[in-house]
Design a binder for these strands. Structure first.
Lengths: 120, 120
DNA sequence: GTAAGCTACTTATCAATAGTAAGCGACAGG
DNA sequence: CCTGTCGCTTACTATTGATAAGTAGCTTAC
């Protein structure tokens, strides 16, 4: 966590960092990936697990995440057709990397509420 | 990285995760924090390091990040007054946690370009 | 058999956010 | 004076998000 490690990051790494975090952090995307990790497969399962999202945004986010290669859409020709969305290895890796944020969010919330200092 | 670890995440952890990632991943926020980590202090330094951001958005993002406790705004009564924005410990911790994304972004880009499979 | 409901969407409309451009007051340098 | 920097703000347009409703194809309940 030394500042020095960050001072000589090149431009390409910065752009990669920015686009990665903005993809993962775009509204609902994090929660959708987390839902997939928690076992959601069908459209309606995602809608249940991702609290507050509308059908319209869920549909467009799933399309976007599929395009980005984080989710795979599979149509099974049952009757009626059932469609399942599963995380790709890339998507699983991403959310695994991001998991420590949960702990950070907890600590950060405590700090803001109670004013407890945190070690640098 | 077992899926099982994610299946019994409680509601509170999900909400924390979502709000944390959406704060960090909101457009420009990641790049601004990274700029701070790379040594930016003055408004104009951030503007230079964060490629493509406008004055208007930089000002509003800095205000937001200050409100969230990730950045500290300090007014020094020189003539003319100079204002410096530094990362708080919380902000530094956050970007340190997120740093692995750079590597992920690289691997993910390669995978998308070349179709090379990645281990789960 | 018909009314109601589920599934995976799309369409329409409106509010919120982001992008672009310009300006502003206090200075400083030429 | 004229131009330029600093740290913003204001005004306006474009993009994105939220809310609500509609849809085709099917299943279930009465």
């Amino acid at each position: 966590m030394d500042e020095k490690d960050f001072e000589r990051i090149d431009e390409a790494a910065c752009r990669r960092f920015q686009s990665s975090i903005e993809l993962a952090g775009r509204k609902w995307n994090g929660a959708i990936l987390l839902a997939g990790m928690r076992g959601a497969r069908r459209f309606s399962e995602y809608r249940t697990l991702v609290d507050g999202i509308s059908d319209r945004l869920l549909a467009s986010r799933l399309k976007e995440l599929e395009y980005e290669g984080l989710i795979e859409r599979e149509v099974r020709p049952t009757t009626p057709v059932s469609i399942s969305y599963t995380l790709t290895p890339s998507g699983r890796q991403l959310i695994t990397l991001l998991q420590p944020l949960t702990e950070w969010g907890h600590a950060h919330a405590l700090e803001r509420a109670g004013g407890i200092a945190v070690a640098s």
